[in-house]
Design a protein around this nucleic acid. Sequence first.
DNA 1: TTAGGATGGGCAAACGTTTGCACTATCCGG
DNA 2: CCGGATAGTGCAAACGTTTGCCCATCCTAA
Lengths: 338, 338
Amino acid sequence: MSPRPSIKDIARLAHVTPSTVSRALSGSGRISEATRQRVQTIAQELGYTPSVAARSLVTGASQTFGILAPTLSDPYVAAVMGGIETACLAAGYHLVVASTAGDPQREIEALRVVMGQQPDGLIILSARAGHAYEQVLKGIQVPVVFINSTQPGERVFSIATDNEYGGWLATRHLLELGHRRIAYLGGPTAGRSHQARAAGYRRALQEAGLRFDPTLVLPGDGSLAAGQVALDHLLAQDAAHRPTALFCYNDLSALGLLAAAHRRGLHLPGDLSVVGFDNVPYAAISLPPLTTVDQRKEELGRLAVLTLLAALRHEPVSDIRLRGDLIVRSSTAAIRHD
Amino acid sequence: MSPRPSIKDIARLAHVTPSTVSRALSGSGRISEATRQRVQTIAQELGYTPSVAARSLVTGASQTFGILAPTLSDPYVAAVMGGIETACLAAGYHLVVASTAGDPQREIEALRVVMGQQPDGLIILSARAGHAYEQVLKGIQVPVVFINSTQPGERVFSIATDNEYGGWLATRHLLELGHRRIAYLGGPTAGRSHQARAAGYRRALQEAGLRFDPTLVLPGDGSLAAGQVALDHLLAQDAAHRPTALFCYNDLSALGLLAAAHRRGLHLPGDLSVVGFDNVPYAAISLPPLTTVDQRKEELGRLAVLTLLAALRHEPVSDIRLRGDLIVRSSTAAIRHD
DNA sequence: TTAGGATGGGCAAACGTTTGCACTATCCGG
DNA sequence: CCGGATAGTGCAAACGTTTGCCCATCCTAA
């Protein structure tokens, strides 16, 4: 097993110096066509691949982006990663990933690990930013982009779903179907995304000339269980007062509610129209398939990479709010007039 | 924005040479306690992080594993990645990932990209191995481990779910519930995994003293649609002959069948017990929740890393077949005796 | 006192690449 | 026929680290 061929091996075989080989391979500099051909052929035959280590040592750029994510096994994260990966490959960048498991201690550790690779940029996926990052980020010289969270700092950018718009979109859809008593099942109360979605919900109601009724806002935490609890809550109300439609903070709680509704013999969307948020894979095959707001996850990832790329070229870049699309399925229907 | 501090900067401040700094930081070599302290303090203050590029250039090891996956957005891949990532971080290794999109052309490209980082090992997740990899793999000096597929070669290993066992497990569960007419909804006919699961199914039947009935094997391809088609197929048979239980190649087709069954008014598990394979996240919340064979995905990833680590230490390693667990939920029930 | 070992640290080479500079032909115009 | 531009290539330094080897210094024991 011979050691990997280096630029010197090629040089020897081609009867030129290493510098000529470098130029011939990179295409930069003035090189005769003949030499270029010869060198490239030999490189091919030897199965030469340049040493990134050596290259980045001298150029100072690693052609690598670092990714920090709470976990890789979550479908949402996975989808964003997919978008990141595709865009990176296209731009000739590599990806170094580390997961933080949501553990603040490991966040620091993961950041250290990733930075060790000297990435040219950093992408951070983290539900709750702040805290740990705040200080550490100051010591970082490369551009950073947060996905669906923000953080102040220079050379720090943000790509996020427009949650307010999404909430508005979902609610307007229900309004257009004729619903007037529309409830909102909330998410983690401290979360920005929950508040933004709630704000969109309220704006839509207001634009429709409806008064906001606080009793129609159900507490939740975005879990499956939250959906089931919420259903109990709804059924406890007397039928006359019961909302005819429900916008859920996310698909997970909406799906939990769907399952519970099914067990309780509630007919959807006849008895209740439900809209989720996220468009998780399962929403397409639930019973009934769930109307939801798609968080263009791949696009989030793609834009993050593009932002990094632009920042590296010192082009002016600004934060991006991405508007999702409403995916209408069968969990919503026009209100019954009976 | 000053350039990252190097070992030389520390050396200057500590009034020692770079070599001493290196030794003090790495803990190797004979260094006085006082010097070590001083150097480490200064390194800390400067926020020094070693240049992996320079280090791997001289040591020849990059402390990096390369991952090749068809995509990152698939939940199955994501789960395996999670296991890989955790194990890597624990071992102090980095992760460089590239996705192949299942495109043979891009597979080569991705492999080239990943190898460019000079990883110390390679993990390949690819449903269908062979083809593209066969030749390229020969030129690779580092150990390689395939997950859920195999490939001959030296320093090439394999970690795979024991599909035969899984098929046997699922079928035996149904047998223990009293079922005697048990159908199997197949997967992609060319796939090894499909054939192994089918083999397990047959072995279980045989052990129970039942004759294998080819008409109980339904063609499929592992898609949602396949499950729906399969249900039509089942309902077309006259009730007396209809199987009372069904083992599906994977959860996806099982879920497709569940949804179709629901639409057709079939009562599960009363009219039909269904077992899937994979334990996708959604299986836990389907209607009814799906009994399935768990593919210990995180464990697959973890073992892949461990195998690589062992191979790098030149310890003897062998391929691993991993046995999944049966997750009993509500889509299976004892046969009705009526 | 002195030889010998131990201890602490410096020197310099090496890893594989890139790139500014210098150098030699060759070519062109005058 | 000569001067200068230009094309093609070589030289050597530099990137940040690790590590084998050597050199002081100091301690210990005979």
